[in-house]
Design a protein around this nucleic acid. Structure first.
Length: 354
DNA sequence: AAGTCGGGGAT
DNA sequence: ATCCCAGACTT
């Protein structure tokens, strides 16, 4: 080893001191705020998460405010951020901390790890940032940086490689300032050792980096293969009565968007030959007219959804909602947490449907 | 160990 | 189109 772990660590800390971004969660050691930021940033860019973080804390400044909230309110604030299980777990965990732990956050790695929604990364982050526990964080940034620095060529998703990375990070981490070190190593991956076009020519680890020496920067970390997406064909029935009321429902199946609201839905795994009529939705209303939108393509990590909205105008007023559905003025749908597929096309719907 | 869960931005 | 992002949970 040309450079000791300590020397590398101190170079990194020095770099961070000069190059750190000014981010709100770096100005606090309040476990609630740190926890929120870590959950919110899972698989999410800082730029995308930042406005959500500010809004969320404004609405729920303390743990008690969050535990007192309704699930719908929490999801509404999360709307558009994706991976909604994060919000659901955040909420239930807040309630459990209040009820079972007297509102006091666990103050160590293992206690944090026991919380729903808190895995190895988040437990390491909170325990180091808030309680100075020397637990190295392993996230996408760290995997990329260390697999390049040490020329690790194995499958970056595998548990072996992750163990190797963790072992290296744990040797590098500063025992005196673990919180700063963890911020620093992630920041270096985010700003300097980036996925594409990393800034190797000006890199402080230029002479240490195995990937740079062996010309493998652009192939490390090695990630096996991309996933294949399932195609789904959604037809949303937007039933509109003369008073402008419509039917929606909360999604309760183990599927995407659990807990969010959408319109009555019929689904096909292959494109159907014809646009489904009102009877396919199982409703027996007098339909005076119908209109269907163009197909909207909505892409998720494991699915491609091809959706159409179909307006059915009913001849008389809807007085009660069948089964799982609720009857609301279409104008008020925005008060409910919605999938982006719905939220992004409400304007189109209003123009088209009224 | 592999699948699933979202959405946006960069390339 | 493809990849990536302060990952965790389920199977």
């Amino acid at each position: 080893m040309k450079n000791s772990f300590k020397a590398l660590s101190e170079k990194l800390l020095d770099w961070y001191d000069k190059n750190a971004r000014d981010l709100p969660w770096r100005k606090t050691r309040d476990p609630y705020r740190i926890w929120l930021s870590e959950i919110m940033l899972q698989q999410t860019t800082v730029e995308q998460g930042l406005p959500y973080y500010e809004r969320f804390l404004k609405r729920f400044p303390r743990l008690n405010d969050l535990s007192d909230a309704s699930p719908d309110d929490v999801l509404k604030l999360w709307e558009g951020l994706g991976y909604y299980s994060r919000a659901r777990n955040l909420h239930t965990t807040a309630q459990q901390i209040v009820e079972n732990l007297s509102g006091k956050f666990p103050d160590n790695y293992n206690g944090l790890l026991a919380l729903k929604g808190v895995g190895p990364y988040t437990a390491a982050a909170i325990s180091s940032f808030c309680f100075d526990e020397p637990r190295a964080v392993i996230d996408g940034n760290v995997i990329r940086f260390l697999s390049r620095l040490y020329g690790i060529e194995g499958n970056a998703q595998s548990s072996e490689v992750k163990k190797t990375i963790h072992s290296l990070a744990q040797k590098l981490i500063s025992e005196s300032v673990p919180a700063v070190f963890n911020q620093a190593i992630m920041e270096f991956g985010a700003l300097k050792c980036t996925p594409k076009i990393p800034q190797c020519s000006s890199c402080i680890f230029k002479t240490d980096c195995i990937a740079l020496k062996t010309n493998k920067v652009d192939v490390l970390p090695f990630k096996p293969r991309k996933i294949k997406k399932r195609d789904r064909y959604f037809f949303y029935g937007v039933f509109l009565d003369p008073e402008g009321r419509t039917l929606i429902r909360k999604r309760t199946n183990k599927d995407i968007w659990l807990g969010l609201y959408d319109f009555p839905l019929v689904e096909y795994d292959v494109p159907p030959g014809i646009i489904p009529g009102p009877e396919v939705f199982g409703f027996d209303y007098g339909i005076t007219s119908s209109f269907f939108s163009d197909t909207i393509k909505h892409v998720l990590s494991h699915q491609r959804i091809f959706a159409r909205f179909i307006r059915f105008k009913t001849s008389h007023e809807l007085v009660s909602a069948p089964g799982e559905y609720i009857l609301i003025p279409l104008k008020q749908i925005n008060e409910y947490p919605l999938p982006r597929l719905i939220a992004l096309h409400l304007n189109d719907l209003s123009i088209t449907l009224f």
